[in-house]
């Protein structure tokens, strides 16, 4: 009996250590951090088991970096978790990201799209409402708004994903240092 308990605890602790190491993306070498955003511009990662496991869980069936870059955010610019009890804005210029296509999408904590009556889940470089200079502001809120409104669920944590397809190679190589739109908590 003692031997079975001994083995059981060792296996449980082994699994717990593995899970902790996989979800600890903040200190992962697979991802760079740029303001609110975390991403990788060197996929696929080759034979590193831990990094591959992390990418598999957070970006299943991801494309290689020369095809697409995925940036992930679960916190606002002040480091607080994104939460549907608050409203947020994300502002920038549509030409700030040099790519064939880019988009911002909201996901629930479960990493699936957030059901909403407007059936609106994302904005991309071709459907954002901008001013004549290309400036835009996306309102991320559980309450309905006019303009670029990205619906989320009230009082539920959420994540944002910025996708960049066929990005300009110079832009992509500088992505960890380039200024990206920050997610600001606001009162609307």
């Amino acid at each position: 009996m003692k031997k079975i308990l001994f083995l059981f605890f060792a296996v449980v602790i082994g699994l717990a250590v593995a899970l902790y190491r996989i979800i600890d993306t903040d200190s992962s070498k697979a991802f760079f951090h740029n303001g609110s955003w975390m991403g990788s511009n060197s996929l696929p990662l080759g034979k590193n088991n831990l990094l591959t496991a992390q990418v598999t869980l957070f970006a299943l069936f991801a494309l290689p970096s020369e095809e697409a870059i995925y940036l992930f955010s679960r916190k606002d610019e002040s480091g607080e978790f994104l939460d549907g009890k608050n409203d947020y804005t994300l502002s920038g210029n549509v030409n700030q990201i040099k790519a064939k296509y880019w988009s911002i999408t909201a996901y629930g904590k479960d990493l699936f799209l957030i059901p909403n009556p407007a059936d609106k889940y994302s904005f991309n470089n071709s459907n954002l409402q901008t001013d004549s200079a290309g400036n835009f502001s996306i309102i991320i809120s559980a309450k309905s708004h006019s303009g670029n409104w990205l619906p989320i669920k009230s009082n539920k944590r959420f994540n944002l994903v910025l996708r960049i397809y066929k990005g300009d190679s110079a832009f992509v190589s500088q992505l960890s240092r380039t200024s990206l739109s920050e997610i600001k908590r606001v009162s609307i």
């Binding site: 001994f6 060792a10 296996v11 602790i13 190491r21 598999t56 299943l60």
Partner: peptide, 25 residues
């Protein structure tokens, strides 16, 4: 022995994640 089991379990679990995820998908 305990530490060796802990290390082996976490190594094999991490290495198996892509296979597990592929199987589930």
């Amino acid at each position: 022995v305990f530490l060796a089991i802990v290390f082996a379990v976490q190594y094999f679990f991490i290495a198996s994640v892509p296979d597990i995820v592929f199987f589930i998908a």
